[in-house]
């Protein structure tokens, strides 16, 4: 990446360039003006004195990414961003949604789509955001696969990644039912039935999803709870662990990137 250009300093006459006040300097004043100017810093200091999080922040932000890091490395954070977008738009949809199959679910979605200000737009963002997130997860997984990033020492991060992939697919599956139109209803019935053909756990899992042997009144609220509480919580927690490991282990360099071979430089760098 080329160096970012520096803004030129504005041409100020010397007498306007006051030297920065030194700490404990009486003349610079600890007057109200000065205090107001530093209010933000004081608040951060106050919090940090109690939480000591600035170290963690520095650790996360000022770690180095290896030479050769390219645009493919943005796919992970892009996925996370898509997830955040889903979370925000989902909160707005949840303000109107009623998980009641008898009369409510479909009507509330119709209300959002047709009546609420920007409702269709937000619903569209949530709907297509899910597609974008799934595509990004797969691209990110492809990137880590082709770069061999799942190998030592990042095996655990790959495993957490697969859990995230499954959770993302689960989000899509549970969310599909919620509008409760024909498509949603029948696709989900078939999906749950497919699930029931599985060995051992299959039938139990289907019963759990349906909240009983039949597709009933509580099925929808169960899907809703899974879709908007259980799985997003799990995803958020898993992303936390994923990112912790990314910062801890560092991101890989592209596999074809070679470290400096010159022994002199080698020594200097270490």
């Amino acid at each position: 990446m080329p160096k970012l250009p520096k803004l030129p300093t504005p041409p100020l006459p010397p007498q306007f360039k006051s030297p920065p006040p030194r700490p404990g300097d009486e003349a610079a004043g600890s007057g109200p003006l000065q205090q107001a100017a530093e209010a933000g810093i004081s608040v951060v200091d106050w919090v940090d004195e109690r939480m000591s999080l600035s170290g963690a922040g520095r650790w996360m932000l000022f770690r180095k990414v290896p030479k050769g890091t390219n645009w493919a490395y943005t796919l992970g954070s892009a996925t996370m961003f898509a997830f955040l977008s889903q979370a925000v738009t989902g909160v707005f949809l949840a303000m109107y949604y009623r998980p009641d199959p008898a009369g409510g679910a479909y009507e509330s979605i119709r209300y959002v789509t047709n009546e609420v200000f920007l409702g269709q737009f937000v619903r569209g963002m949530h709907k297509w955001g899910s597609t974008v997130m799934v595509v990004l997860v797969f691209l990110h997984m492809g990137r880590t696969f082709f770069y061999g990033a799942y190998k030592y020492p990042r095996e655990l991060n790959w495993v957490i990644g697969v859990v995230l992939l499954i959770l993302t697919m689960l989000m899509s599956f549970t969310g599909y039912l919620l509008p409760f139109d024909q498509r949603a209803y029948w696709a989900t019935i078939v999906g749950v039935n497919i699930n029931g053909t599985g060995p051992l756990l299959g039938p139990y899992l289907s019963d759990f999803l349906r909240a009983g042997p039949e597709f009933g009144a509580t099925t929808l609220s169960r899907f809703y709870a899974i879709h908007m509480l259980l799985v997003p919580g799990a995803i958020a927690a898993m992303i936390g662990a994923h990112l912790y490991l990314v910062a801890k282990l560092g991101t890989t360099a592209p596999p074809w990137q070679k470290a400096e071979k010159n022994p002199e430089l080698r020594k200097a760098e270490l």
């Binding site: 000022f62 290896p66 490395y73 796919l75 560092g250 990137q257 760098e269």
Partner: peptide, 22 residues
């Protein structure tokens, strides 16, 4: 890897800038 990392750039602002654009 330690060498490649030492030759790299800080995450902030370089990677953050790319991530934000993405």
């Amino acid at each position: 890897y330690a060498i490649l990392k030492a030759q790299g750039k800080p995450f902030f602002p370089y990677a953050v800038a790319k991530d934000s654009l993405m």
